[in-house]
Design a protein around this nucleic acid. Structure first.
Length: 271
DNA sequence: AACCTCCCCAACCGCCTTCAT
DNA sequence: GATGAAGGCGGTTGGGGAGGT
């Protein structure tokens, strides 16, 4: 990474008009975009910087470097190319057909059998997140959103566990929804709460009364103490949310009831 | 209409675990 | 038990669509 560390005048480099590069230089640019995977991954934002240094002579790779950086170029590479990026309808169809016959397992075999120039992992992901039957897409309901929020509070970023309790939803979708919608909502709510608490500091008595009211409204003391006991005796999220059995997804009402108990426990303990 | 910016989400990656030999 | 392959997961990226200027 000495290329970046030794860069002179980062601003100047960033502002360099790359579009002014002539066609011969562009050929070299295309070579460099075929730079070694690892290099590109580590400095994806700086690839233009490397190009600039290369094009302006600040960096001229040794023969060894060239061998390393360029071995993925279509002409020079000996490694087998695989399709990447978006799936086509044709690919989807081929994949679905093979899975219908052989089942959703042995993904490398499935990929080969379907005649797809893709890795097994890519096929699995496509199936799990898109082609699988009974997948719900988009339009996450208020009830589902509420459930995600509460499960996340309980489990953290364990998206597959959370998704396992939302029938038809995938971990990827939940994760995306969290990152694009819910995390912002939460931050916004926190900001509002901070603003309110600054404006009118809440007494501990008021807070306690609110907690008691909430408990009374949601589950009652008896349930709350049961809930507390279960947490005291050790709560194993992995076991509780184990989806490996054939029972199918638990219904949302049941889950909501549990989560109400859970929230009450957190509230009682001022967590 | 053309360009720019933002942001959503499909897909990829690396790491870890599980499974098969 | 050791090893390699496959599967599963969470973090991250970047293409492209939507909306703004």
């Amino acid at each position: 990474m000495y290329l970046i560390d030794n860069a002179v005048g980062l601003e100047k480099i960033v502002n360099h008009p790359l579009e002014q590069i002539n066609s011969e230089e562009m050929k070299e640019v295309s070579f460099m975009y075929c730079a070694r995977d690892e290099m590109a991954r580590k400095v994806p934002k700086h690839i233009e910087l490397i190009l600039f240094l290369f094009l302006t002579g600040c960096f001229w790779p040794s023969q060894d470097d060239r061998n390393n950086f360029w071995f993925d170029h279509p002409v020079r590479s000996t490694r087998k190319e695989v399709n990447r990026g978006s799936w086509t309808a044709e690919e989807d169809q081929k994949l679905a057909q093979v899975i219908e016959i052989h089942g959703p397992k042995r993904w490398k075999f499935v990929a080969t059998k379907a005649g797809l120039n893709r890795c097994g992992k890519s096929c699995r992901l496509r199936w799990m997140n898109y082609l699988r039957p009974n997948i719900k897409r988009g339009n996450i309901s208020d009830q589902e959103e509420d459930l995600i929020l509460r499960l996340h509070r309980l489990l953290g970023n364990r998206w597959s566990l959370i998704a396992g309790r939302l029938p038809g939803r995938t971990d990827n979708e939940i994760k995306n929804y969290w990152n694009s919608h819910l995390s912002k909502k939460i931050k916004q709510r926190e900001r509002q709460n901070r603003a309110v608490s600054k404006a009118e500091p809440e007494s501990s008595d008021t807070k306690n009364i609110q907690v008691m009211e909430m408990n009374a409204l949601t589950i009652g003391r008896e349930d709350a103490s049961k809930c507390e006991e279960s947490f005291k005796s050790g709560f194993n999220g992995d076991e509780f949310f184990d989806c490996s059995s054939d029972e199918g997804p638990l219904n949302l009402e049941w889950m909501n009831k549990f989560l109400e108990m859970d929230e009450s426990w957190f509230t009682l303990h001022d967590i």
